[in-house]
Design a protein around this nucleic acid. Structure first.
Lengths: 185, 185
DNA sequence: ACGAGATAATTAGTGTACTAACTATCTGGT
DNA sequence: ACCAGATAGTTAGTACACTAATTATCTCGT
């Protein structure tokens, strides 16, 4: 049942890093240990989530698409929007939508105003599948973070925010066109 | 240059979660937000690392193998050991070793005592490649975590340890055979 | 009003990791 | 001594996400 690991790989083990510290002066053991631990915990949590979603025949990517569509029932999204919001390429989104459409969870429809675009909508079957999976999904997340008090969660989030801000201090590449950018709520 | 994301996908956005909280009583916004942020920061850090490794023609998986081999120069490892330590399946390890061997970074050698097994060793070329990449790798990690003080890193690690312990409270599946388990240092 | 360039979606091809099944070898109980 | 079952490594087939190239459509400046 439990998948080996979805995709976030094992990462050099803590001991490995310590062993190397003797040979490479660049190593800051505290930094390395924090990094490894962060990636490992994230990987474990992600694996749990993937395992749960797999029971409902969703992958993380497909689930993300469904959640996005669920959120904007009135304001249909096109594949380009979805790709940007989900953080994948448009090519990947094509594949995700192919799969979801094959199972009739979503439908693609032409946009009259711009024939390059499509509109993607949840079908009734899709909405149903989402309703079935959603409660358990959020129960799982609550359980996964249950070891921390509210205060601790806040502290964790502060530290992660700080960490994220530093870590992201350079790439932030601009990919392609504006792609609507509507409905920012 | 900067890859879209290696594999850890975007994960439902923070706003998405908040929007859903109104409709699903199971949602604990603090838990969800913490989870999303953790996965997002981990994903960003992982992407930075992958980008760096790609410059040296390593993937995370291949890098992990090289680090493991580097660490046990005297006590050669077999593919099964490597797979277990790296957290991938034996089949995946076969593929990683195929690639590394093709580029002459590692060598497979027969084990006389048990003809089912192989021993994997770093070649000189492999050791050289590792030496080239290692300093920058650890400088990157130090930079990525540079936004946190030593004290903050410690707090973060405590929280992550706690979180990880809870999150991992059930699967922990036993996969296959003992596979040596030697050299635990 | 027309053509260059931008944008949307797709297709083709690659890389990586998984499961399942297969081959070869080893081990231990009778 | 031998065979059932365990173990090591590989192969075959699948899934997913990427880049690059392709096709269709739109937009804007002259």
């Amino acid at each position: 049942m439990a998948k080996q690991m979805y995709t976030l790989r094992d990462i050099p083990k803590y001991e490995t890093i310590r062993a190397c510290a003797a040979r490479y002066p660049e190593i800051d053991p505290a930094s390395s240990a924090a990094c490894v631990l962060l990636l490992r915990v994230a990987s474990d949590i992600l694996a749990s989530i993937e395992d749960y979603l797999a029971l409902h025949n969703f992958s993380q990517g497909r689930w993300t698409v469904m959640m996005l569509l669920y959120r904007f029932p009135d304001n249909p999204l096109n594949p380009c929007d979805l790709a940007e919001r989900a953080g994948v390429t448009r090519a990947t989104m094509t594949g995700l939508l192919d799969g979801l459409e094959r199972e009739q969870l979503v439908a693609r429809e032409p946009v009259l105003a711009d024939r390059r675009m499509l509109e993607v909508r949840l079908t009734d079957k899709g909405r149903q599948a989402l309703d079935d999976a959603m409660p358990g999904y959020f129960r799982l997340i609550r359980r996964l973070t249950g070891g921390l008090s509210t205060q601790e969660k806040e502290t964790l989030m502060e530290l992660l925010t700080k960490l994220g801000a530093t870590a992201m201090a350079e790439p932030e590449k601009e990919e392609a066109g504006p792609c609507a950018e509507a409905a920012k709520s």
